[in-house]
Write a protein that binds this DNA or RNA. Structure first.
Length: 802
DNA sequence: ATAGGGTTAG
């Protein structure tokens, strides 16, 4: 090879031309890591030095090679110098292809436009069409195809392949549009070409209309011969529609060892959550000896990350390292990106960070993966750094950050970020809306939520399940069951999440019977309940006092649906039994549990004991709780309540002193309120306490009548039965939070309140305060750490003091 | 001188 770089001169001119042509041909067909560009430049320099005037075909070759080897400026210079006056379609074609490959579509079009009509031939047009196809400019490619018809330039299989693949980028892709193109192909007689039929299958695969699947299959069936790409495209066509088993049938019909089809099949399994199938194929692939490439590794690692098989993922990682990094850095990028996800999902966010740091050319996916890694590990500070340092952001970035704030209890920050996003002119996707609407629900910002609902309709996102489900939940959390129900009834696609959310909405608002009716309806409709469904229905039973029904649902979980109850389900069951006063049964359940009871269980026990005055077990529960979470402010309050209830005043004094030392606020006068639409009971330990007096006044404003039932035996608690005549005033919320909210009424307008740490301003408390501020026409400011929440005229604004 | 498929972040 090297010998061609230096030439002797003892040859005649035509021979020199042949030599150059041969050398350039060799260069064009040679492969390998040696610097082809350097050798091309040497040959070009040689031509210039000899003063040899090369003819068009040599010049074309030079321009083509400069283009292919990435030296576009040289290609262009030579092109302009040679073809300034007499244009040449071949050289122009090379340049167009090179420009569009480098993403310079406008320069490509410039070359195209400056080539006179007389010179334009089929190949020339094809190059420009496929440039548009590469750039996903569907309409431009089709316009050019029409242009070709007008110019009476012949179309060939390349033309149609290019047009069909460009048309696939048009969204939404109408079935009729695909059929029109199909007709044009049949008329042209080019469907004989495998590439054209493949492109047709791919086009139908991208069309969302259900009938398109059959058309794709028809094209496939009519093909006299198929190649590897045909099989791959057909598999992909089924995979995209979620027809995994049909995809598998096609895969099995093929007697191939073609790695791309395997990769397509594996990624199909991963996309549809069939992770073990994906891993099975991966194992088969390595057994049979199908080459594993970066695509395979990426899909398989994604399967491991998403199914929690972290150890398996780690061994694949080790395998990649052992196999040696024989893919180039650019090909390795998606693998490294998924490794970042794998390790951060495994809770090893620092390992993920190290991998992230080592990525040579990070792209937006790498940054987003790292961002969500930190957010999932509750490392807000690091996440904010990543978010700030990112060189670019996309829709997903904003969405991840907004819902990340939400899941870390910083919903207001999420809302602020949503506004920033809009200010920066980024168009939110339906998932962004879902996250932001959820944040509104979390802080009870009903008005804001309604505005987002309106935007959702304007943007045509009503058919998005995630957004609609978020709306349903938001309305429910903001206290508007009717709006939630309306959303549920008018949703275009109801899925199990919607059912769960609606059942929860009813349960939270005291419609226990309606909630379990809806649960039964869901089963009748053939929707498979999941563990969340059972949590929801159990808490609905608990609110409505439907103890036996709740017990039966709990038992049916494992028996009828094969869902083994988790600690959260046990907690609900114990809460249910405890509220009903069946403490002994609750205790038996605790003893039968497969795991040791955690804080949530003890809290449920304690709550039951407090209602029904089982002080010995209550004390035990409070002490357990205290041991487990000594830093939890609420525990002090609970423990002192319990000691007070059993008359152990020295212990009360001890806890009070501890609270004082640690700066924990004394509990408000009202210790427990439960308001449902069935039973309206509230329990106070000091009827003369100013907060309690406020509650009486407030209930009076609302027109709620109540009746003193008497004292709880052996305690100082007074039991009231509240008769709510106006249903719309019924509140449902966690008792302590509501108590704090009630307490706020006592304060002068605009007063600042410090809120106990365990009483973070979350959705329930928020909506209660909002509700009260509206009911009594008062402005309330709540301060929570450095943040403040300002309630006025049914609106809440949040901000930081410094 | 031009064409068709599979990968990652929620």
């Amino acid at each position: 090879m090297r010998g061609h770089d230096s030439l002797s001169f003892s040859v005649s001119l035509p021979d020199i031309a042949n030599c150059y042509a041969t050398i350039l041909h060799r260069l064009a067909t040679s492969r390998g890591p040696t610097s082809l560009l350097r050798r091309l430049r040497a040959v070009h320099a040689h031509i210039l030095a000899t003063g040899f005037k090369p003819r068009a075909h040599i010049l074309n070759r030079l321009i083509d090679l400069y283009s292919k080897f990435g030296d576009l400026p040289s290609a262009r210079r030579l092109f302009d110098a040679t073809f300034a006056h007499r244009r040449d379609a071949i050289a122009a074609t090379s340049l167009i292809t090179a420009y569009s490959a480098g993403g310079h579509l406008e320069s490509a079009r410039q070359i195209f436009d400056h080539t006179p009509l007389a010179f334009r031939d089929t190949v020339f047009y094809n190059a420009m069409i496929s440039s548009y196809s590469r750039a996903l400019e569907g309409p431009a490619a089709i316009a050019l195809y029409r242009h070709m018809l007008d110019d009476r330039v012949d179309r060939d299989s390349y033309t149609f392949t290019g047009v069909l693949s460009a048309a696939g980028a048009i969204l939404p892709l109408e079935l009729t549009h695909c059929q029109q193109l199909h007709c044009a192909v049949v008329k042209s007689g080019t469907e004989e070409a495998i590439s054209v039929s493949n492109a047709l299958i791919a086009l139908y695969a991208k069309c969302e209309a259900p009938e398109a699947a059959a058309y794709a299959r028809q094209v496939f069936n009519l093909m006299p011969e198929r190649d590897e790409l045909t099989w791959t495209t057909m598999v992909v066509s089924y995979v995209r529609r979620g027809h995994i088993s049909k995809a598998r049938q096609v895969f099995d019909e093929m007697d191939g060892r073609f790695d791309v089809v395997w990769n397509a099949m594996i990624s199909g399994y991963v996309d549809h959550g069939l992770f073990s199938e994906a891993l099975k194929m991966f194992r088969q692939m390595s057994c049979i000896g199908i080459p594993l490439d970066e695509f395979t590794y990426t899909s398989v690692l994604s399967a491991c990350a998403n199914s929690g098989l972290f150890n398996h993922g780690k061994s694949v990682h080790a395998h990649i390292i052992r196999a040696g990094p024989d893919f180039d850095p650019q090909a390795a990028l998606p693998v490294e990106n998924v490794l970042v996800t794998l390790y951060s999902k495994d809770g090893k966010v620092d390992v993920a960070r190290r991998i992230f740091n080592d990525i040579w050319m990070k792209d937006i996916v790498s940054w987003n993966a790292m961002l969500s890694g930190y957010l999932n590990s509750r490392r807000i500070h690091d996440a904010v750094h990543i978010f700030r340092d990112m060189p670019q952001k996309n829709q997903l970035t904003w969405m991840v950050m907004i819902s990340g704030y939400l899941h870390n209890g910083l919903a207001e920050e999420g809302l602020k970020l949503f506004n920033c996003m809009r200010e920066e002119g980024v168009k939110p996707c339906d998932y962004t809306y879902a996250g932001t609407i959820a944040a509104c629900g979390e802080i009870g910002a009903l008005e804001h939520g309604r505005q987002l609902h309106a935007q959702l309709i304007q943007l045509g996102y009503e058919s998005s399940n995630s957004a609609e489900n978020a709306l349903l939940t938001m309305y429910a959390k903001c206290g508007s069951v009717d709006a939630a129900h309306l959303t549920f009834l008018t949703m275009p696609n109801v899925d199990y999440v919607s059912w769960n959310a609606m059942i929860a909405a009813l349960g939270q608002h005291g419609y226990g019977v309606e909630a379990i009716d809806l649960f039964d309806q869901m089963i009748k409709d053939g929707i498979q309940p999941d563990r969340i469904s059972f949590l929801t229905v159990l808490s609905a039973c608990s609110h409505a006092g439907l103890v036996d029904e709740g017990f039966e649902y709990f038992n049916s979980m494992e028996r009828d649906y094969g869902i083994s109850p988790g600690e959260d389900h046990y907690t609900k069951l114990i809460d249910l039994l405890g509220r009903a006063g069946r403490i002994d049964e609750a205790w038996n359940v605790i003893k039968s549990m497969p795991c040791a009871p955690g804080p949530a269980i003890w809290e449920a026990v304690l709550s039951g004991c407090r209602i029904h005055g089982n002080m010995s077990l209550g004390k035990h529960a409070a002490e357990q709780l205290f041991k487990m979470i000594p830093e939890h402010d609420g525990t002090y309050v609970l423990l002192s309540n319990i000691y007070a209830a059993v008359g152990q005043w020295t212990d009360v004094a001890k806890v009070r002193k501890l609270m004082k030392d640690r700066g924990v606020k004394k509990e408000p006068g009202c210790s427990w309120i439960e308001v449902t639409n069935k039973v309206h009971v509230f329990l106070v330990n000091d009827t003369t306490h100013p907060h309690v007096q406020d509650i009486y006044k407030f209930l009076d404003i609302l027109g709620v009548k109540m009746r003193k039932l008497g004292y709880v035996p052996n305690t100082k608690f007074v039991l009231h039965d509240v008769v709510a005549e106006q249903k719309e005033y019924v509140l449902s919320t966690h008792s302590e939070k509501l108590a704090v909210a009630f307490g706020l009424l006592k304060l002068p307008a605009g007063a600042t309140v410090r809120v106990l740490k365990n009483l973070r301003i979350c959705g329930d408390c928020h909506s209660a305060i909002m509700f009260m501020s509206l009911a009594v026409g008062r402005e309330i400011v709540v301060r929570d750490g450095k943040r403040f929440h300002h309630f006025k005229n049914g609106q809440c604004s949040c901000g930081n003091y410094w």
